[in-house]
């Protein structure tokens, strides 16, 4: 019998917390997202590995290039639905739009244009604080890699 009482206690707690949780969920608009983009040049030159990229070392080395240099780094703080623009070397422009936050993931719309042409358009669900790499555009003696980290 006392077991049943205990169970009731839990349900009480459970429902109570659930209501609190419902009340605590932030309003949908005005949410801020932080997007960081590291622009990296991957090549087979002898420049070596830029120590500022050590946190990404293992992932970058998977790309099978020898040298990785950080060309630039930009952090964008954006409201939900707003689009941030970033100039990428080689006359490219990157546009990122955090659309919403859902189940621990930032849903990010990314568009990279080269002149008038669209190079890549994608929608990503990136785990909060996770990083995804977009690469391939040739630049100088190598290729560009954009490491995009998103968090709310």
């Amino acid at each position: 019998m006392s077991r049943k009482v205990k169970l009731h206690g839990w349900i009480f707690w459970g429902v109570g917390l659930m209501l609190l949780w419902g009340a605590a969920v932030p309003p949908a608009h005005g949410e801020m997202f932080h997007i960081e983009v590291q622009v990296i040049l991957a090549s087979n030159s002898d420049e070596g590995f830029d120590p500022r990229l050590l946190a990404l070392k293992k992932d970058l080395l998977a790309l099978n290039y020898i040298s990785f240099q950080l060309l630039g780094n930009k952090g964008l703080a954006m409201e939900r639905g707003k689009t941030g623009r970033l100039e990428v070397p080689g006359g490219r422009v990157m546009e990122v739009t955090p659309e919403r936050f859902e189940k621990g993931k930032v849903i990010l719309h990314v568009k990279i244009n080269e002149g008038d042409a669209s190079l890549l358009t994608t929608r990503l669900r990136i785990r909060d604080h996770g990083t995804v790499m977009l690469g391939g555009p040739p630049y100088r003696h190598g290729f560009l890699v954009l490491a995009v980290t998103a968090n709310r």
Binding site: R123, T131, G135
Partner: peptide, 26 residues
């Protein structure tokens, strides 16, 4: 990766051994 448009270019999509990072390579 929900959807992806690359203007007809080939795209490689893979994960790294390092920290299972997703790479989209155009």
């Amino acid at each position: 990766v929900d959807d992806l448009e690359s203007g007809g270019r080939t795209v490689l999509l893979f994960k790294t051994h390092g920290s299972a990072m997703t790479v989209i390579w155009v």
